[in-house]
Design a binder for these strands. Structure first.
Lengths: 122, 122
DNA sequence: TGACAAACAGCAGATATCTGCTTATTCTTC
DNA sequence: GAAGAATAAGCAGATATCTGCTGTTTGTCA
């Protein structure tokens, strides 16, 4: 695909917008799997048939400095008897990058803003 | 199935024998997934189609005090980019229980002793 | 001996994350 | 405008552990 430096592709914009929406609801950290579920329901049909695409997008965003990653407290995962989550938080740069990206390609993404309404984010 | 108190069923015997064999090779701790791989190759045909059976057997053995469980160091899992393992170690009681069980039902299990030879235990 | 209850076996899938391979798309350069 | 290079998307499956449900086996008791 070869991208222009400093640009965001639709999936990345979607991730950032979803994170922003969560932040507005007071949820300051998210993880890949929850995002995948949100995206699957928000953008109806099959997307991310395998989750690899999403996780790779998260890695890219992390590398770009737009999100910050950290592993959740292992005792929490133990207590809830599930695999440990890698948590993400929006970085300060994200808002700027997002508005710039939105200005460039408007209308391409934005389907995930719908999670402003619904609860249920696990 | 309803079992007599203090008895071991074949799968449990297999697990303990596999653990004992590993111990003799100097490997003092094992985890469920590795055991599943060993069992799958040692007892040729399909066994443990789903791994649930094995994990439940491990829980039983833990409850019976024959193995001791602990979660591996999370930094290790991070470093190797894989889920955290729940490690098991034979308890002191295991040897006694095993020989008693072997005396009771001899010839029923024992297929896993073959891992005395092969390396490759991850 | 037959019925019942308890517990195991097997099936299916959830929870999370990650990687290798192939295919499709897009940018750049000529 | 076509070719070539880089990178994302999609497919498939590995790595680990766990749970709910159904079916099967076995010990016990009448």
């Amino acid at each position: 695909m070869r991208r222009k430096a400093d640009e965001l592709i639709p999936l990345e914009i979607s991730v950032l917008e979803a994170a922003l929406a969560l932040e507005r609801r007071g949820i300051m950290a998210f993880h890949g799997y929850s995002l995948a579920k949100v995206i699957k329901t928000a953008t109806d049909r099959r997307m991310l048939t395998a989750h690899g695409t999403l996780y790779r997008a998260l890695h890219r965003l992390e590398q770009a400095g737009l999100i910050e990653a950290f592993w959740e407290d292992p005792t929490e995962a133990e207590r809830e008897r599930r695999p440990r989550r890698r948590m993400y938080r929006l970085a300060a740069l994200a808002a700027v990058a997002l508005s710039r990206a939105r200005a460039q390609r408007r209308g391409t993404a934005g389907k995930l803003a719908s999670l402003d309404e619904e609860p249920e984010t696990t």
